[in-house]
Every structure is written in C-alpha cells, then in structure tokens.
Amino acid sequence: MEYFEPKSIGDALSLLSKHGAEAKVIAGGTDVMVDIKFKEEPGALVNIKKIPSLAGITERGGSLRIGALTTIRDIETSALVREKLPVLWDACRQFASLQVRNTATIGGNICRASPSGESLTPLLVLEANAILAFSDGERSEPFKTFFQGPGKSAAGAKGLLTEVDIPIPPAGSKGVYLKHAVRGAMDIAMVGVAVMLTPDAGKNNAQDVRIGLGAVGPTPLRAPKTEALLKGKALTAALIKEAGALAATEASPITDQRSSAENRRWIVEALTRRGLEQTWKAATGKEVA
C-alpha cells in the first residue's frame, strides 16, 4: 500500500486522479482503519488531515459552514451548532463513543454514505449542501442528490468533500434526531429519524415540517408525502398518528442482522410520531391536542 499526506486540496486531487479507484481517502480513520484490518488494504491511502483549514465551524451569510475534518465531538460541543442546528447537535451526541467522536469527522461520516450514518438525515432535513472539490473546479451538491447508494456519493473516486454548507433554519424552528438501537449511541442505528418543524408566526400551525429517515433505504431518505400532509396544519394526535403510518410506507427497509424490515417500519412509525410530538411542543409551547 502506498501512503500519502497531501498538504493542499490540489495535491490531494492530483493523487485521486492518478490512483483512481485504487485510492482511499482517510480522515479520522474510525471506519477506514477497520476496513484495512478486516477487509482489504487500498492500493493508495490518502491521509487528508495535513491539509490546513479543512476543520472548523463558521457562520457566513445565513449559513453555518462546517469543514470536512471537523470532528463529531467539535460539532457536539459547539454552542453555535446547538443553538442554530439542534437536529444536527442531537445526532452528533448520539454518535458512538466519546473516543470515536473525538476522532471521527463529519466528512468521513458523509463520504461513507452509509444509510445509517448519524449526521446524514439531519443534513437532509436541513437541506444542506456538500462543497466538493474536483480537479476542474468546485461545486455545491445538495445532499438530496449527493447520496447515491450505500457507500456511493456524488464525490465519486476523484472528488473531495471540503465543507458542508448548512442554511440556518428560521428562528423558532425546532429539530430532533431519534435513534433506535440496542446499545444506545454505541450501536449502528436500526432506524434513525430526524424531524424539523417550523411554526407559523402565531405558533398555531406547522408552517414547514421536514422528516428524514435513516437506515431504512439504500440512502438516507426524506418523507415527502408525510411532510406534505402536515404542512400548514396544527398537529393533533389524530394527524400525528396518520403521519406516522404514512412515513412507514415511505421507508423502504431491508431485513438484516440488526432488524427485520417489518420491525423497521414499526419503528419509523413510532419515531416519526415521537419526533412530531416533541418538535411541536418545543416550537409552539403547546401539547398535542
């Protein structure tokens, strides 16, 4: 295995162009090191941690920009993220162990493109964009189209994720990330559900509702039919029940060692209901009628 520590984005892109599918980018290493030990070594390992200015959280023009090398712990402990992007904060605090959060990067979690990746459904509901560098220039790709399948993303073999651009939701918007797993944060999620709710000015209706479903499809998913059902309405117990059942039909889970597909649909239903109840109460100050 060849090994490289590029010092610039340009150098990293040249290495990826040269080595193509043989190359593997490594950042924190909490996934890639396991692959190296238990699956196979790549032909060339490209460690991007020596590239300056790829880590950090900054507010810029109504967005938060999070560098690809920012650790999950740095996101979890950022007062800015907790205040402006509670749905992402909530996911990062349920992300494996402290040791892993101290090492794992958001860029790695994204580029791994696992349907169960903790940060992915929050990024979908936040309608965030991946900032990708290619040898012929930079482009911004919405996460809606970034994720293409398990382990497959718009970064491909030759692109490098440099930053995540996250529009800050309107003030008053609330978000939660709910994870179902046997061993809490330590486990890979059987199901993860991200819910974001923005109330109208009078806090009487849900002006906007966004629902993200994790580990129940080849990519993290949105639940557009469920969102449309709820938009502009006051959330009642009956409506939330209907929304949970509809969200379960929008998931396309598989059966694997962690859960059956049927069980996953039940959990989607339960977590969607719970997420709607919690965000409605947080956003409007009212219990669900």
Binding site: Y3, E5, I26, G29, T30, M33, V34, N47, K49, R73, S97, L98, Q99, V100, N102, T103
Partner: peptide, 16 residues
C-alpha cells in the same frame, strides 16, 4: 489520550 482527548488507538493511524 491523544493531544488531551481520549481516543481508540486501535482505529487511529500510527502515522497520525
């Protein structure tokens, strides 16, 4: 403890 933070040394590159 790596630069003040607890980490899993089994999934950290020696090169780091």
């Amino acid at each position: 403890i790596y630069n003040g933070k607890p980490i899993n040394s089994c999934v950290t590159m020696a090169a780091d």
